[in-house]
Amino acid sequence: MRRISWRIILAATLLMSSLVRASADDGAVIDRWYSALLVADRTELSELLSDDVRMKLDDIGVVQSKQDFIASIDEWRGAVAGAAIRHRVEKSENGETTVLACYDFPSNDTLIRETFTVAGGRIVASTQTAVAQDCSAY
């Protein structure tokens, strides 16, 4: 039986701890995202998005650039007034985090699955797909 070197164990431990930290950092970025989204904070949202981000809205067949998204913030501000957004991470691996989010608007709610790719503390890709017309499954 071969003995495992302490160096290999140390390297594996360091790698695992860096992956856990990266996942935690991604979670912090996503928490900041939803907080900024709820109040339509253009500055914070802009800081969270990479310059070359692609935001895919599956249900309506649209892909937005950072500029497209930021340009829509004033309209979003009106839509999100009085709303709540609840979210929970379903899974996070290899820099990709899948979130189930309930957008609870004053007149209706909707359940959305969103997948974020985070690199360097910024969102580099996002895909959004409606799951249900209400949040009862949240």
Rank of each mutant, 00 (worst) to 15 (best):
residue 15 L to F: 13
residue 15 L to V: 14
residue 15 L to K: 06
residue 16 M to H: 12
residue 16 M to W: 14
residue 18 S to I: 12
residue 19 L to H: 11
residue 20 V to Q: 14
residue 20 V to Y: 08
residue 21 R to C: 09
residue 22 A to Q: 04
residue 22 A to F: 03
residue 22 A to S: 10
residue 23 S to A: 15
residue 23 S to P: 06
residue 24 A to T: 12
residue 24 A to G: 11
residue 25 D to C: 05
residue 25 D to P: 03
residue 26 D to H: 04
residue 26 D to M: 03
residue 26 D to W: 01
residue 27 G to N: 11
residue 27 G to L: 04
residue 27 G to V: 02
residue 28 A to R: 02
residue 28 A to H: 04
residue 28 A to I: 00
residue 28 A to Q: 06
residue 29 V to I: 07
residue 30 I to F: 09
residue 30 I to W: 03
residue 30 I to Y: 03
residue 31 D to L: 09
residue 31 D to R: 09
residue 31 D to E: 15
residue 33 W to C: 00
residue 33 W to N: 00
residue 34 Y to D: 04
residue 34 Y to C: 05
residue 34 Y to T: 04
residue 35 S to N: 13
residue 35 S to A: 15
residue 35 S to H: 13
residue 35 S to R: 13
residue 36 A to Y: 05
residue 36 A to R: 01
residue 38 L to F: 07
residue 39 V to D: 03
residue 39 V to S: 11
residue 40 A to Q: 08
residue 41 D to M: 04
residue 41 D to S: 02
residue 41 D to G: 10
residue 41 D to L: 03
residue 42 R to W: 03
residue 43 T to Q: 08
residue 44 E to R: 01
residue 44 E to D: 07
residue 45 L to Y: 02
residue 45 L to Q: 05
residue 46 S to R: 06
residue 46 S to T: 11
residue 46 S to Y: 01
residue 46 S to F: 01
residue 47 E to L: 05
residue 47 E to M: 03
residue 48 L to S: 00
residue 49 L to R: 02
residue 49 L to H: 07
residue 50 S to Y: 08
residue 50 S to C: 08
residue 50 S to N: 10
residue 51 D to H: 08
residue 52 D to S: 14
residue 52 D to L: 11
residue 52 D to K: 15
residue 53 V to Y: 05
residue 53 V to D: 01
residue 53 V to W: 06
residue 53 V to R: 02
residue 54 R to P: 07
residue 54 R to A: 15
residue 54 R to F: 08
residue 54 R to S: 12
residue 54 R to C: 08
residue 55 M to A: 07
residue 55 M to D: 09
residue 56 K to I: 15
residue 56 K to S: 13
residue 57 L to T: 12
residue 58 D to N: 12
residue 58 D to V: 15
residue 58 D to Q: 12
residue 59 D to T: 07
residue 59 D to N: 15
residue 60 I to A: 11
